[in-house]
Design a protein around this nucleic acid. Structure first.
Length: 510
RNA sequence: GAUCGCUUAGCUCAGCUGGUAGAGCAACGCCCUUUUAAGGCGUGGGUCCUGGGUUCGAGCCCCAGAGCGAUCACCA
């Protein structure tokens, strides 16, 4: 391994630390008593509570002034200045702990622990006066140095997306502002989970490795089970398993599920992504719309304390209820096109006329979907339910109670993007079998997104499935919306990346 | 997949019409007991993404490739 000059120097420092009899990676716990933030916020009003504090974190800056120094210690909650004076931490003749360890051998990035007392410097900054300094873990690789001046200008920012995503640990260390996105992501999931649990719906886990990749239309990742000698697919959806659990007699089941789709990657698509799917018995899609808008409002308030959020250029109002409009009416209202009387040939001609990219493999439903995507989607900024989709593209939803050729389905659009998708679930096993057959016909016609037939799923439905409404929410996209991020990579700790060049070469050697 | 752009020190970036590599931070040495983008003096550090080509001479021009980004198209 080729080491840089600075890496060589840090390894040499490591050796010298050991020679001083100091373990650079001590095993025992460190008795942390406070977070930086607690001291910064609390010292002002209750200075007596901070006469002995013990904090730990990374050393992020050293300002040495001879026999005394200021430094900055960064922990999970933020940064605090520490004051280190020679005679307070070193008591031997040589003042080893200060002159050698602190001044020479500690580097930016090292984990240290300090004990001391909070005080205010003469410029009024709350700091910790160190009386005892402990090295907790030596860093042998230099971090990027990001500095912020008095006016808040960031200097030498660590912004290269490739490095930020590949080395997220560095990103979150030197760019602590991004931590908030992930804290909000976690909180959002907790808010949803608590919301569902209060209603006594059951959180479940269903198979990721599936013999048939059903429940959605997408190309799967394929793998192989050695002992059974069969192919298995990483799930592209979990819908058919959750419905089996509704058949089994649970009133409500939900799962936060990683899905895997072997398709393109860009700023809104990652090969693995998180969906939340929920199925509730004895409900329909109208009930589900009320549930979803209550949930989304609850999330906005839980994360931000308010319902109106700034997303990009737009201010979005998440307060329920949301506008509801059928797909046909939306195409008419937003696109000025009445498709209610059009057959497949007329729709195809209309697409061609408008230069919408279509081909002969597309059935009526798919053509309408294309028109909708082209004419309407981008205009749906405020939360809007689009309801009642063509039957052809929705093989798992129940036929509409009054409208011929439609199903009871809605999608929730916000800021021009789909956030949620829900149905009154099809529970008629004879109809369900016919729908799968129609999908097979579409597949024969060349539609590679047509859905595969799952005999065991049909068998479960034949035993009897209660009327049910089901919902899927793209968690990554919801987090993007709620944290005002425009790329999925910013809301995933470890977005999928191409292998690093260095690794590739090493693999080729093997 | 298409078009455009980027890739130079550990990090952030300059580098003119082609003439042999620069700054700030970081590092190293020295000074400094209330600094805060700490400061002062000094020092070291580079396969200029890779491989070809043109040229007396390439970080710069040409060709091919890689990685990354932006925009567009498709999937959630």
């Amino acid at each position: 391994m080729q080491l840089s000059e600075q890496e060589e120097i840090r390894r040499a420092s490591l050796q010298q630390i050991r020679e001083l009899g100091i373990d650079p990676y001590p095993p025992e716990l460190y008795p942390v008593s406070h977070l930086s933030k607690e001291i910064l916020e609390g010292f002002e009003t209750d200075p007596d509570d901070y006469k002995t504090v013990c904090i730990a974190g990374r050393l992020m800056q050293k300002r040495i002034m001879g026999k005394a120094s200021f430094a900055e210690l960064q922990d999970s909650a933020g940064r605090i200045q520490i004051y280190v004076s020679r005679d307070d931490i070193a008591h031997d003749e040589e003042k080893t702990l200060y002159n050698k360890l602190f001044k020479k051998l500690l580097d930016i990035g090292d984990y240290i622990g300090v004990k001391g007392y909070a005080f205010k410097t003469k410029t009024g900054q709350t700091s910790v006066h160190v009386t005892e300094l402990t090295l907790l873990s030596k860093s042998v690789k230099p971090l990027p140095i990001v500095k912020t001046d008095d006016e808040g200008n960031v200097h030498d920012a660590f912004t290269d997306p490739e490095l930020r995503y590949r080395q997220r640990y560095v990103d979150l260390t030197v760019n602590p502002q991004y931590r908030d996105i992930f804290l909000k992501r976690s909180k959002l999931i907790t808010l949803m989970r608590n919301f569902f649990n209060e209603k006594n719906w059951l959180e479940v886990e269903t198979p990721i490795l599936q013999p048939i990749h059903g429940g959605a239309a997408a190309r799967p990742f394929e793998t192989h089970h050695n002992a059974l000698d069969i192919p298995l697919f990483m799930r592209i959806a979990n819908e058919l398993y959750l419905k089996r659990l509704i058949v089994a007699g649970f009133d409500g089941v939900y799962e936060f599920a990683k899905m895997f789709r072997n398709e393109g990657m860009d700023r809104t698509h990652n090969p693995e992504f998180t969906a939340m799917e929920i199925y509730v018995a004895y409900k329909d899609y109208i009930w589900m719309m009320e549930m979803v808008e209550t949930l989304i409002e609850h999330i906005a308030v839980g994360l931000h304390g308010k319902t109106a959020l700034q997303v990009g250029e737009q201010t979005i109002e998440f307060k329920a209820p949301y506008k509801r409009i059928s797909m046909y009416d939306a195409i008419n209202e937003y696109g000025g096109l009445d498709i209610s009387g059009m057959d497949e040939a007329a729709l195809y001609a209309e697409c061609k006329k408008r230069h919408i990219d279509v081909d002969e493999t597309m059935g009526r439903g798919k053509l309408i979907d294309e028109i909708f995507g082209e004419l309407v989607e981008a205009q749906l900024i405020q939360p809007t339910y689009i309801t009642d989709y063509p039957i052809e593209m929705t093989p798992l939803a129940k036929k509409h109670r009054t409208e011929e050729g439609l199903v009871e389905r809605f999608e929730l659009f916000v800021n021009g993007k789909e956030i949620a998708n829900a149905y009154t679930e099809l529970n008629d096993p004879i109809d369900q079998r016919e729908r799968f057959m129609d999908q097979l016909k579409l597949a024969e016609r060349g539609d590679d997104e047509a859905m595969a037939l799952d005999e065991d799923f049909l068998r479960s439905m034949e035993y009897g499935m209660p009327p049910t409404s089901g919902l899927g929410i793209g968690i990554d996209r919801l987090v993007m919306l709620m944290t005002n991020q425009s790329s999925i990579q910013e809301v995933l700790f470890f977005p999928q990346m191409k292998p690093e060049v260095q690794q590739k070469q090493e693999e080729e050697k093997e």
